[in-house]
Each structure stands twice: as C-alpha cells, then as structure tokens.
Simulated assay, not measured.
Amino acid sequence: MPAADLITSPQNPRIKNLLRLQQKPAERRAQDLTIIEGHRELTIAHQAGVAVQALFVCPELAGETKMRELESRFGQLTEWFSVSRAVFEKVAYREGSDGVLALARPPRRTLTDLELPRNPLLLVLEAVEKPGNLGAILRTADAAQADAVIICDPRTDLYNPNAIRSSIGCIFTVPTVATTRAELLEWCAQRGIRTYAAALTDHARPYTEFDFRGPTAFVMGTEADGLTPELMHACDQTIIIPMGGYIDSLNVSTATAILTFEAVRQRS
C-alpha cells in the first residue's frame, strides 16, 4: 500500500537511486533493475510476468481511479512510495507523465532459452544504438507476433527506459535476446533458419521475390552504417525494398515493418 509519508525531496536516497538508474546503464546492470514509466507500460509488463520490485506514484498525477487500480494489482508489494509532483517530474523520463513509475527486474534470455515453433519468424538487429528504433521494431514484432527479436552486438542497453517507453512495454511481450554475430549465425544454421540481409547491394533482389513461409530471420543494420560486411555476406540472401523516389533507403523500423508484414501476409 502507499506509504503514509510523501517523498518531497529530490535528495531522498531512493530518488537519487532512481536518477542513477535512469542515467547509467552500468547501474542498471549492477542492480539488475530497470525503470518502467507509465501505467500502460507497467500493465503490459505485469501481464507479461515481469517482476515488479517497487512503485513510485504521484497521487496528484495518477488520480484516484488509477491509484485504486494500482493498489488492487500491486497492493502486496513490499515497497510502495508516494512522491510529490515536483519530485516525480524530476525523475520522470518524459514530459506529461501519468504519475506512475516502477522498478522491475528485466528478463534475461539467451538464444537457448527461445522456444520456437516449426516455422519461426525472427527479427535480427545488428549493433542497434537508438532506443527509439529498437522500441518501434519491438512494437512491430508484437503486432506481427514475431517469435523473437535478436540483437547482435548491441550498442544500447536493451532495457533502456527510453526503449521501454518507445516500445510501449512490448520489450516484455516479445522474447528479446542479445548475442554475438557468430553465435547468431551458428544458431540459425543449426535450426535451418534462412537469413535475409536487408542491404543495398548490386546483387540484392526485391523482397517480393522470396518465400518467407519457412523459418525466416530478417537481418537489419543501423541507419548510419547498414550491416557489417561480415554479417551481410554470411546471410543466405540479400534483399531490398525497391525505392521509386530520390532517396535509396527507409528508416530501419519502417523497413523492418514492411518485411515483417510481408512474411505475415504470406503465412496467412
């Protein structure tokens, strides 16, 4: 239940720890915690089985209805803290927050933890560095019911609060794994998963020419650099989305969505 005393000082040790967790990936790893901001994101995470450790709620922002719902859902938590609006706005990651913030233990998976169907659909991202792009791709994966999102050699913390926010909590609904390029390629080969590198090369063929009804992994690079030559050449096929205008590429999250839903269309 909410604590009787309101936290009104940003110098409170718990608030200072929240700020460290917000700002420092190393701190999140050391404490094995991440921050989930927002009632919707928290609800999705809880439904996905994420272990919530503590709640920080601003009654003024959350409102009575949301407070009652939170008490019903999380009333048995050992830690629940009410905070003033000024303090909450200091720790909130986004403007216009709804007054709900949680500390949670993020799921940690490896490739061997993934339970795949006979014809899996996987999204592979190499060296992703923008939490916003990761979040958008996770939303696509959730909507398309992809079986996993696999990050090769990530440059960002998968459970960065901004990635959680931009995914609207879908990072908890889609199995997400960080691994290396070598481990990914060996794992796909062992399971007969065909890898399709999205890259602008002379030998790339339009994605509409391929059959994605079998075990499929779309392999996407960064917007700045694309795929590394090592990963691109190791994939089974290289595909492109034909472009009819002046530009030659799309935002990586948009390109991923186009390819993913083409696979869904074929499979349906």
Rank of each mutant, 00 (worst) to 15 (best):
N119T: 13
H203V: 07
L103G: 10
D211K: 08
N251E: 07
Q237G: 00
L42P: 09
P59V: 02
R267Y: 07
I36C: 11
E95G: 15
A54K: 11
A48K: 10
L101T: 03
M243V: 08
E37W: 02
L125F: 12
P175N: 07
V50L: 13
P206G: 10
D98W: 02
T222H: 02
I44T: 10
R94A: 15
D147P: 10
L184T: 01
I35Y: 05
A104I: 01
S9Y: 04
D5Y: 00
L6E: 13
I168Q: 07
V87T: 06
A198N: 01
W80V: 05
V91Q: 06
V124R: 04
E186G: 15
R155N: 12
L19A: 14
G214M: 02
T216N: 06
Q190N: 11
I35E: 01
Y246C: 09
A92M: 08
M243Y: 02
R109F: 11
I137V: 14
I193L: 07
M243R: 09
E115D: 13
I150D: 02
E186A: 15
T256E: 02
T65F: 07
F81I: 00
I36N: 06
V52A: 11
D202A: 15
E37K: 05
A26R: 11
N251S: 11
K66S: 14
A104V: 02
P106T: 03
I44A: 13
F212K: 03
W187M: 07
G49W: 02
R155C: 11
N119L: 05
T140G: 08
L19P: 00
C58K: 02
K16P: 00
T176R: 02
G135L: 09
R109Y: 12
R29S: 14
L250E: 04
Q145D: 09
R109I: 00
T43F: 11
A45C: 11
A198P: 01
P206R: 04
S268D: 03
P13W: 00
Y93K: 10
G192F: 04
P107W: 08
P154N: 07
Q53W: 00
P106Y: 06
A148V: 03
V87A: 11
I239E: 01
A136V: 01
A146E: 00
S97W: 00
R109S: 11
D153R: 10
Q266W: 04
P175M: 08
G96Q: 09
G96M: 07
K90V: 12
Q190A: 15
V128M: 14
D113Q: 05
R267L: 09
K130L: 13
F210W: 12
F172M: 06
